[in-house]
Design a protein around this nucleic acid. Structure first.
Ligand code: NAD
Ligand code: NAD
Lengths: 230, 230
DNA sequence: GTACCTTTGTGAAGGTTTTCACAAGCGAAG
DNA sequence: CTTCGCTTGTGAAAACCTTCACAAAGGTAC
């Protein structure tokens, strides 16, 4: 709904997600306000970075005081598109699919798995926690009926592109892809790849001395990916 | 083992991991050589980017011809630290832990789970596929005995930092963390965070119009995170 | 051997993200 | 009401990353 003057960078969005999590924790701890310094400390960034990030979204702080925890949390949640529930489809009811289904964190943050899809006739018809597993032949109908816009894609790599195409045709606009394949999707569709073998390989690169001189780089090693640009 | 003149950026390492995967596929397809253009096409980057990345590691190509597939694959694998097996410990034998354990992709790429650790007395003593689940009381001994340097951390967020500290004390230098907590580790230890709720939140941000004007940004939406630089 | 085609490797340019540094603003205290 | 201490918001600088553009060089055909 909301738009912003400048294009917001991926790194800013990712950090904002972390800020939100810290704000939720601070609220439970009973803090009323928080400074950019404290926020930064908690997420492993710099205070200037926090202020720059937040300033891209608007002006939230009070000079001399900091940010009001509850207000900022609410505003950030809204900005990140978390002020309403997202109905989510799980595609691929295999090993990783079942772990994802039972992951309570998704629902807590407003992502509710409302449909499970699989092509295996032995799985179709089963129910998980009251949600029936549908055949991928009913994919389009199911996605449309439930208004699903986000899908968790947990099918074998060999079929991932085909299933993704089908999802996009059916109206899905965001895919979290667990298969180790780069998906090609039309403009207007967002994909996030979760590539665990790649994550391990970046670890082994650093451990093997790629960072510098046989030792992992001292500084930025604690920060993680992203670089996650990430 | 190998060191490089300049510090290699995270994005370069991540792309290199993708190049390696494409090279493996090309080898199976029977290609002898590949140009930066083709390599780029397959991973969704530009040809110049591919050449820049590779040039940071050395000079591998032949002008007019391109890169020799097998030679480059071998060299890249070596650079990424994949020319030997890595014994890996799985810590937390829960839902995500068991999916990870059964994920064949890890072993195929040289990451072999040689130890499973859990604190739940009901799980300790069980065997998964011939590998016994050990108590976390034996963590240090197990890690040391098996020479584990990389751990998959799949325990509840509330205990993740404590377990991570214990792992580091025992000699672990690389952690792939699935708990939604930023780990603090001493210099010299590498951590990659896999934060699925965060990935979903970046999707919902884009879908909600954060990218631009109510529509996801047309260009870089297909590229994913790292971003994803991270 | 030469001409031509192709593709690499790489400085330089361009763009983006992070850090720096400080004026401006707010609240509290006296 | 003024002063003081603290913290934000933000231009400018620095660092970093990507793209451009082209000379250099290998292969091939004749
Ligand atoms: N197991 C893990 O820990 C793990 C980790 C990261 C990534 N992954 C990736 O996730 C994907 C699934 O892995 P898994 O271990 O759960 O495999 P799995 O074989 O246990 O599950 C795959 C599921 O997808 C279903 N499926 C197959 N073709 C389908 C189609 N065309 N449409 C719908 N459903 C279909 C299968 O019936 C099965 O239920 C793979 O791409 C894998 O590389 C797995
Ligand atoms: N289920 C998912 O799909 C999923 C996805 C992403 C991230 N995660 C994260 O992964 C972690 C594990 O999630 P899960 O769903 O597998 O939970 P789970 O409860 O199924 O498994 C957690 C396991 O950790 C063990 N454990 C608890 N304390 C321990 C300790 N101190 N030392 C060693 N082992 C200990 C438990 O006995 C249990 O076996 C959580 O942090 C969760 O947020 C889970």
């Amino acid at each position: 709904m909301s738009t912003f003057p400048r294009k917001i960078s991926d790194s800013t969005v990712r950090r904002s997600s972390l800020y939100l999590r810290v704000l939720e924790a601070l609220e439970l701890e009973g803090s009323d306000t928080v400074s950019s310094r404290v926020l930064a400390e908690r997420v492993g960034a710099t205070a200037a970075q926090v202020r720059k990030d937040l300033s891209l979204f608007g002006t939230f702080g009070t000079r001399g005081l900091g940010y009001e925890v509850t207000a900022l949390r609410e505003r950030l949640a809204e900005i990140l598109g978390l002020s309403h529930e997202w109905p989510v489809a799980l595609v691929g009811a295999g090993r990783i699919g079942s772990a994802l289904f039972e992951y309570p964190n998704f629902r807590e943050r407003g992502f509710q798995i409302v449909a499970i899809l699989d092509s295996d006739p032995r799985k179709v018809g089963q129910s998980w926690d009251g949600i029936e597993i549908h055949s991928t032949r009913e994919l389009e109908r199911t996605i449309e009926r439930l208004g699903v816009e986000i899908a968790l894609l947990a099918v074998p790599a060999s079929v991932a592109q085909g299933v993704a195409d089908h999802l996009v045709e059916s109206g899905v606009r965001g895919i979290l892809n667990f298969a180790p394949t780069r998906l090609r999707v039309p403009p207007g569709v967002a994909v996030n790849e979760v590539d665990l073998a790649l994550e391990l390989e970046t670890l082994s690169f650093v451990l093997e001395g790629g960072g510098r001189d046989g030792n992992p780089a001292p500084e930025d090693v604690a920060a993680g990916p992203e670089g996650e640009s990430r």
